[in-house]
Design a protein around this nucleic acid. Structure first.
Lengths: 221, 221
DNA sequence: CCGGATCCCCAGGGATACTG
DNA sequence: CAGTATCCCTGGGGATCCGG
């Protein structure tokens, strides 16, 4: 990208990661770990192959990712975040937290993936009862599956299906994520199609770190 | 900007502030408060007027800034961050902290302004001796002047000249900022042209929040 | 099938000039 | 001073093609 030409750390950061798609590539690598070219392409619906290729070159040149051959059996290339790349996590967390306010509006053509269902609870909620017993919550949204595990005061998430969840939240993405992020209360999420099965009391343990304007309806578009 | 078309809060945040110049406009408004069009243009060397105009429209439409007429005597338009805009501060802080690693390399043509000298200490350093006596540090870099005030465990910065500073740091921007950000130790900053006059012991009170690789020289480019 | 490279087209950005 | 208007050109989107 063309440099902003300013001796300012914000401007210099944007010189490196301000290009279109760049921070989303970092998001993918942060959420998934090492990725093949195709993994990245699948995780970034809408990106053109040439652009992805170009960005990966830029990121490698800037020292944010490393490109290495996978061990013999697979014979493919793996892209991995370097330390400098991993240190972008606080940036993506801040950006994602700020962006929650725009999740209330529905856009039918938007892509949706389980990864994006999983990072929200992991990054933007805390366990209000850290000493409480372990618990497992199954999330289901638009055929995407994720699991929240509460244990030892920490919140861990993973993809897929839990064997015996204590609580199941099932509904359209914005109802599930709206509830978890604190932008929406249970009643409103229910009206948007959220189904809550199991130990409903576990919801009180998920405390959004966001200011939480749960009483309010839509946030300004 | 063209939407990424992903139901993900990071992608939606970037839909709003991912355009070129947008976050730097927010930076200006965050550091200076309400600004006139010309103030913004001067604070963003390199931006084209039509682009700035277009971005301000977008930002207003997104609800991040308000546009209002200034009180009668001046008769001009003032742009001000809304609450949603102000809440981007953590994003800019995270980005600026991450970007410090790129400040070690010199680029002679880069613009430099006192504002960018001032926000670093305010955002990225803490007072290691919060109960210590108040102190005033004068910063001088490339004819730009800023003042750091230590008082009550808080670090406040402002532009301009202090009347009777306890310590004066004077030198090229990357020496002054390198030292303050913890990317550089005193010896190295001295070799780059930093002059330290006055109570040198005050330097120990400025503790960078960054991991600080002060022993190391250049950070990877 | 994976990991790109090439090509074409158009929207968005940059520089300058101009106007209320 | 506060923007608009214009022109030019780069960079991104989309599809196709190619080597391993």
């Amino acid at each position: 990208m063309r440099s902003y030409g300013q001796y300012c750390s914000i401007a210099r950061a944007l010189d490196v990661v301000g290009d279109r798609w760049t921070l989303l590539i970092v998001r993918e690598l942060l959420l998934k770990g090492s990725c093949r070219f195709t993994d990245l392409k699948n995780g970034l619906p809408g990106v053109a192959a040439n652009l992805l290729s170009s960005r990966l070159k830029d990121l490698e040149a800037a020292g944010l990712i490393t490109r290495e051959d996978a061990p013999p059996p697979v014979a493919t290339v793996l892209y991995t975040l370097s330390e400098a790349g991993l240190e972008l996590e606080p940036v993506l967390k801040a950006l994602g937290l700020w962006g929650l306010r725009f999740m209330a509006v529905e856009r039918p053509d938007d892509a949706f993936q389980a990864q994006w269902l999983a990072y929200g609870p992991a990054w933007f909620t805390t366990d209000a009862d850290p000493d409480g017993p372990p618990a497992v919550i199954q999330l289901v949204a638009s055929d995407e599956l994720a699991v929240i595990e509460l244990r030892g005061g920490r919140i861990h998430t993973r993809l897929g299906r839990a064997t015996d969840p204590d609580l199941v939240l099932d509904g359209p993405p914005r109802a599930v994520l709206g509830l978890l992020s604190g932008m929406m209360d249970v009643e409103r999420a229910g009206r948007l199609g959220l189904s809550v099965r199991g130990r409903r009391d576990l919801l009180t343990r998920l405390r959004p770190v966001a200011p939480g304007r749960a009483t309010q309806g839509e946030v300004r578009p």
